[in-house]
Design a protein around this nucleic acid. Structure first.
Lengths: 148, 148
DNA sequence: GCTATATATTTTAGTTCTGTAACATTTACC
DNA sequence: GGTAAATGTTACAGAACTAAAATATATAGC
């Protein structure tokens, strides 16, 4: 297998990958936009809902935005009464983001439809295909993120 | 397989998918940024290089940006002397984007390293795995884009 | 041929996020 | 203990793109 062919196939995979991502992301975006959220905002709510209160720095790792982005998103969600900041006992620099009761109720209300939208987006795959895709992309992600 | 499990697995796939995409995209972005380009700008140049002159509307379909986004990108690249607009003979509303000679030389110069970066990003996959991923993601993309 | 509708592109205001600097705090090192 | 370096978060300017409206042109329908 000469380098050129591996390269051509990788480029082709990247095009396909990027298009698939754009298509699924567009569905996700359309779904959360119905509730007045951006995908990133929804990501914050979802992470807090599933993981419990997180340091802003932890949140940053979960939803893959910049430091300033976390501040921006938490500010916005705080403004909507869905999230509050609480000081960290151990580190005077740090804050946890917590869902409010309203925030929890909101996520519990909107999450099922979002989950259904994502399920539908991948419904073209059989269960075993989905598991294969997950495993392959997991490895790509780890490698591309860490160069390992 | 009850609906809940399919949904959970799809959500998990989406998380993995989004993280893998972010990681590879970050590599692509880092590579093109070295030449003063955004990923979208590079996408324009690459599309023109591989497909030849395209109507702005065709370009929009190739690189998945908005109408206004195509205008913005072509303006920017025109400003750098890499691209020119030419009128379409058959439709007085339409323009083609063409690479300039400088643009062609520029793409030819920077493309090999970009291709190498993408190849490396997917190098964790064996050729058959890569082909499987391409096929699965192609189907996801078509389905999610068209709801078919 | 005429009118209504659709479309290619641009303009313009706006949104969402980023990069960078700043500041307070923490950690590392001697 | 003291100093240098690192870090958690925010402020702020700016980048990169989008949505929507506008305009000229093309197409559809009669």
């Amino acid at each position: 297998m000469p380098p050129r062919d591996a390269q051509t196939e990788s480029l082709r995979l990247w095009v396909v990958f990027a298009r698939a991502h754009a298509a699924v992301a567009a569905r996700a975006q359309a779904d959360v936009a119905r509730h007045g959220l951006t995908v990133a905002e929804f990501g914050v709510l979802e992470a807090l809902h599933h993981k419990g209160p997180l340091l802003l720095s932890e949140l940053k790792e979960k939803i893959l935005v910049s430091n300033a982005g976390v501040t921006y998103l938490v500010d916005r969600l705080e403004g909507r009464g869905l999230v509050v900041r609480r000081r960290c006992d151990r580190d005077r620099r740090a804050y946890y983001a917590h869902l409010t009761d309203d925030g929890t109720a909101f996520v519990e209300r909107i999450f099922p439809e979002h989950a259904a939208a994502i399920e539908e987006a991948f419904s073209v795959l059989a269960p075993d295909e989905r598991a294969i895709a997950t495993e392959l992309l997991r490895r790509v992600g780890l490698h591309a993120a860490n160069g390992t």
